[in-house]
Design a binder for these strands. Structure first.
Lengths: 214, 214
DNA sequence: TGCTTTCAATCAATCGTTTGATTAACATTG
DNA sequence: CAATGTTAATCAAACGATTGATTGAAAGCA
């Protein structure tokens, strides 16, 4: 799944890149196969040839996203946190990396937009991505929170707390049209992502500190 | 806008209700006018007659959402918070009301789903709803936070902090397919909404307490 | 040659919209 | 009061356009 060897190339890769962009921007149903083919500089029939149809191309986009983001996660795989302080630092680092990737990186824009739409539709792509990406990531963060605060790693409280932490990151991306208006920002770039990351990091430390005192 | 007098009725109202449901569940582009008409128990031509076309019906759905939710906000209009403690209590009340409405109420399900899709598409409906709903709501919460902590109400820090607070609420609704899986919940009902609200309220108090101490 | 890939052309199906007829309720007449 | 005109609303039917998918030929390469 994370094997870079089975990365699509040629026309198939062009089609996935084009579909990822258009699906993310306009949605699956609103994107026509002809539009995808034009953007990929190929013929409409190539979609059926390589992926069996439009729905197959959608699934291929899903596995491609899992492959690419899976690579990012693997690259961020750090050793076990030995102390509460180390766990806290590692959580802040992950949070900052997430904000930078989700809200600040232009190259990941198509990926994120596509995934957000798939989550909203709760389609077959989500099934595939949840097990390989979201669940392990969440579980890992739960373990860090447990190390930092002494909570039980897989308790309901811990899992909810972690969602409230990482959920904030995704909200700033999902609600970007709203956030940028209210903040008076021209767009969501690296500079704005840094402001957001600072705020979320401060919140994280405040929550941990509160737990340490009780 | 919030006037209950101009509430649509008859066929027009049926069409809006049907469209709200289908647009929210399947998306605007994936929903056909015939499907809407069938669900509203009327003819396809009624859409063009009452709203000028499919796009007009979409806008009508937007204003209808603003009208209904605007009513909820007006009902929750409380007097100015006189003390930091009162402001804190009022913020918790609003947060709990939001979670209950967004994640727990079944009657609001169509409304929320529709709005989330409109935000994602950043379409004309969002323009209309932002000014009448989101901005005033956010501004109000900023004032409460300022009263509770002594921050400046319209500073960038305050606005970001408020987004990180209310954003959590929306995330739990947007990411419901993910959250329910990881939590092992069958769905997002009132019971689950209560657990989420408890967590967010605890976070709120922790963040305020931290500010009071510094 | 044999195999994979791409292409223009075409398919039936479905899309949003338009049309003209029909109905019912009300106002305007003689 | 009865007849007529007016209007808003709904309907079945059909419109042209576009959809995803398919076809068989052409092209590229080993």
């Amino acid at each position: 799944m994370t094997d870079p060897a089975n990365a699509p190339e040629g026309t198939a890769a062009d089609l996935i890149a084009a579909a990822l962009h258009l699906f993310g921007r306009k949605g699956f149903a609103a994107t026509s196969t002809r539009e995808i083919a034009t953007r990929a500089a190929t013929n409409v029939a190539s979609i059926a040839y390589h992926f069996g149809g439009k729905e197959g191309l959608r699934r291929a986009c899903g596995t491609e996203v899992a492959r690419r983001i899976g690579g990012v996660i693997a690259a961020a795989a750090l050793p076990e946190a030995p102390s509460p302080e180390a766990a806290e630092r590692q959580m802040e680092a992950i949070l900052r990396a997430m904000v930078g990737f989700v809200a600040g990186a232009r190259e990941a824009d198509d990926l994120i937009a596509f995934m957000l739409r798939e989550v909203a539709e709760n389609g077959p792509v989500l099934d595939a991505v949840y097990g390989t990406m979201i669940e392990p990531m969440h579980r890992r963060f739960c373990a860090l929170w447990a190390t930092a605060t002494g909570w039980e790693a897989e308790s309901e409280d811990t899992r909810l707390m972690v969602f409230s932490l990482v959920g904030q990151v995704l909200y700033f991306r999902i609600g970007a049209p709203i956030v940028t208006r209210r903040m008076g920002w021209p767009a969501l770039g690296p500079a704005e992502a840094a402001r957001i990351a600072d705020r979320l990091a401060a919140n994280l430390h405040a929550l941990i500190e509160r737990e340490r005192m009780s």
